[in-house]
Design a protein around this nucleic acid. Structure first.
Lengths: 334, 334
DNA sequence: ATTAGCACTCTTGCTTCTTGACTGCTAAAC
DNA sequence: GTTTAGCAGTCAAGAAGCAAGAGTGCTAAT
C-alpha cells in the first residue's frame, strides 16, 4: 500500500499533468505543492511509484506521467470532495428545468449540458429494449394504406413505426389489431414481440388476417433496430493537445463513426452509479488512448438510458465525476 | 478561351492531381499522357494556364496544382462521359431495392450508398417544412394524459410529436381536436400551423378548449424544429492526405459538429440537378478548404430532401457526379 | 531519512548543407 | 513561328551537427 506522502505526491503529479499535459518533473512538484521536502526526495519517491506501476516515463530524462494504474488509484482512492462550482450548479439547474414532452429530449439536454460544463465530448444512448415493458400499443391509420404503430412503454418512451400496404386497410382491421396486440402485450417486455408470438397468433386466429404478417415484421424490426448514438461536442476534443497526434484524432473519429464500440460500452452492466473506464482497461484496442465515464440516466429509479463522456486518458476525472453525480441526482429526483 | 491542347493539359493535370495529391510537374504530364510534345512545351502552356488563373503553384520550384477556377472549368467543361462501373451500378441497384416503409429510411440508404461508392463523407437533410402540404392530422391518446399528434404530409413524411397534460384527456376531446385540425389544415402547407391560426381558433371556438393551447405550442415547435443533419462516413475523410493538416481536420469536425453551415448549404436553391460548390466559391470562410456536391432527393419530382458529399477541393468530381446522377435517377424513377 | 551537488541522458530547436525536383529562359532545330 | 534541348536558378525537404535546457539518478554529506 502507498504511504501518505506517496499518495500526496501521486495526487500532485496527476493534478499537475491534467492541467498542463506535460510530463511532470520533481522540481515542479517541490515548488508548487507544499510537501515540505526537496525535489531530491520527491525524485526518490517517484522512482518507487514508477516501480509499483503508478507512473510512467516517456524517456530517461523526462518527467513522469501517470499510468492507467495511476489514474485508477486516483479515481478510486484520491478523489474525495466534489469539484463543482456554484455557477455550474446553477447553470445545470436552469438547463434541466426545461419543460420536455419526451424523455429522449431530456436525455439530450442532459448530454448537452454535460458537454458544456465539462468541455469534453459527451455521448448518450436510450434504454435497452429488453428493459422496457409495454404499456400500450396503438395502431393509427394514415391515409388508407399506411398504418402507424405506436408503442408506449413504462419508461415513457414512445416507439413509432410505419407499415405500408398494397391494399386499403379498414377501420375494422385496425380495431382488431388494437385489441389483439393490447391484450397479448400489455405489461410484457418489448422483446415479447418475437417469432413465438407471431406463430401463436397465427395458430390462434382462424380468420386469415393478412395484415398481421407485415405488422409483426415491422414491429420486430423497430424493436431490434440498432440503438441511436447521440453525440455532443465532438469538436471540443479536437482542442485538446492529445489530438495533435493524427493517429489519436483518427482513432477518435473512427470510434464515434463506427458507433459499435461505444454502444457496447454504454450498454454494459453497471455496478456503481458512475462507471469509469480508463484507457486499456477496456480490452478493445481502439479505446486504449481514451477514457470513458458513464452513468445511467434514471428517473424514479427507472432506466432511461446511459450518458457518458469520452476524452483522453488525461481527463479531469474529478470534475467530470462531480458534474455527473450532480446531473444524475437532479435527473432522478425531478 | 482555352485552345484544345490547353484543355487537354489542364485535364491531365487535374486528373493526375486528383490521383496523387501531389503538385504535378511538366515531366509527368509529358511522360504519362500522350500529348505529343515535350515537357518544355507543356511548361510553356502551364505558364499561360497559370496566368489565366486555372493553375496555382505552391512555390517557385514546384509543380502545378489546380485552382478553384481550374476545378470549376473542369467540372463545367471537361467532364463529359459517365465515370461509373458496372459493379457500382449493380451495387447501387441492390442497395436501393431495399423495401422501406418511411422515406427518411430511403434517404438514409441512398446517403449511405453514396458514401460507400465514392469513399467520401456524405450528408443528408430532409425536405423543408414550407414545401410540404398537410394531408392528414391525427391525434392519438397514449395512456390518459399523453397525446401524440401525427402529421402526414404529401411527401409521405410523417412527423410525430407528443404533448403531455396535467389532467386526463377524454376521447371526446381527442375527436374535437381531430375534426378541428383536419378541417382547418388539410391541404395547407405545414407552415400554416402558426400564431394566426391559433388566434383564429381561439376566437372561433367559444367553448374554452384548454387543450388547444399546449397542442398548438407543441405542434409549432415540432414544425420549426431544427433540421436533422444525417452524416455518413466521416472517418473516410480522415484517410485523405489533406486531413494530415490538423488545421483542415479541425475545420472539418467543426463544420459537421456545428451543423448550421451545412444545413444552410443543403437548403439553398437548386438551379441544376447536381450542384457543385468548390472551395471558396462559398462566401463562408469555413468552407474554403472543401468542396461540396449536392442533389435533391426527388421521387416523382416531389422534393424529399437533399443529399450531398463533402470532401477536399481535390475531389474526384467526375466519379461523384456520375454516381450522384445515377442514384438520383434511380430514386426518382422508382 | 533527507538533501545538495553533479554527471549523465535525452529532447528540442536551430543552423547548415546536400540533394533532387521543377521551373523559366535562351538559343538552336524543325 | 512552334517546338524542344539544355542549363542555370530556386526552393523544399531531409540529414547532420550543435547548443541549450530540463530532468533524472546517484553519491556523499547532513
Amino acid at each position: 500500500m502507498l504511504d501518505d506522502r506517496k499518495k500526496k505526491i501521486l495526487q500532485a503529479i496527476i493534478d499537475e499533468y491534467i492541467n498542463t499535459a506535460e510530463p511532470v518533473s520533481s522540481g515542479t512538484i517541490a515548488e508548487k505543492y507544499n510537501l515540505d521536502c526537496s525535489s531530491a526526495t520527491i525524485r526518490n519517491e517517484m522512482v518507487e511509484l514508477e516501480k509499483s506501476g503508478y507512473l510512467d516515463k516517456p524517456h530517461t530524462s523526462s518527467g513522469r506521467v501517470p499510468s492507467a494504474q495511476g489514474y485508477r488509484f486516483y479515481v478510486n482512492e484520491l478523489i474525495k470532495e466534489d469539484n463543482i462550482s456554484l455557477e455550474e450548479i446553477k447553470y445545470i439547474q436552469s438547463k434541466l428545468e426545461t419543460k420536455v414532452n419526451e424523455i429522449e429530449e431530456l436525455t439530450k439536454i442532459a448530454t448537452n449540458t454535460l458537454s458544456e460544463v465539462t468541455h469534453y465530448t459527451s455521448v448518450a444512448v436510450g434504454p435497452k429494449a429488453n428493459l422496457q415493458n409495454i404499456e400500450e400499443v396503438k395502431f393509427v391509420l394514415l391515409g388508407s394504406r399506411m398504418l402507424m404503430a405506436v408503442i408506449l412503454t413504462d419508461t415513457g418512451i414512445v416507439k413509432e413505426t410505419i407499415i405500408k400496404f398494397d391494399e386499403d386497410i379498414t377501420e375494422e382491421q385496425v380495431n382488431i389489431l388494437n385489441n389483439l396486440f393490447n391484450s397479448k402485450l400489455k405489461g410484457k417486455p418489448l422483446e415479447a414481440i418475437d417469432k413465438p408470438l407471431e406463430e401463436y397468433i397465427f395458430s390462434e386466429m382462424h380468420q386469415s388476417l393478412n395484415v398481421i404478417k407485415p405488422v409483426m415484421l415491422q414491429l420486430e424490426r423497430a424493436i431490434r433496430e440498432e440503438d441511436q448514438l447521440y453525440l455532443e461536442g465532438a469538436n471540443k476534443s479536437f482542442e485538446l493537445p492529445e489530438f495533435k497526434s493524427l493517429e489519436v484524432a483518427k482513432n477518435f473519429i473512427n470510434l464515434l463513426d463506427t458507433k459499435e464500440v461505444m454502444l457496447d460500452l454504454l450498454n454494459t452492466g453497471f455496478a456503481q452509479d458512475i462507471n469509469v473506464y480508463i484507457g486499456d482497461e477496456n480490452e478493445n484496442e481502439k479505446l486504449k488512448d481514451f477514457s470513458i465515464i458513464t452513468f445511467k440516466h434514471r428517473y424514479q429509479d427507472k432506466d432511461l438510458g446511459t450518458i457518458g463522456i469520452i476524452g483522453p486518458k488525461r481527463m479531469d476525472y474529478s470534475k467530470v465525476i462531480s458534474v455527473m453525480k450532480y446531473i444524475s441526482k437532479k435527473l432522478n429526483g425531478k
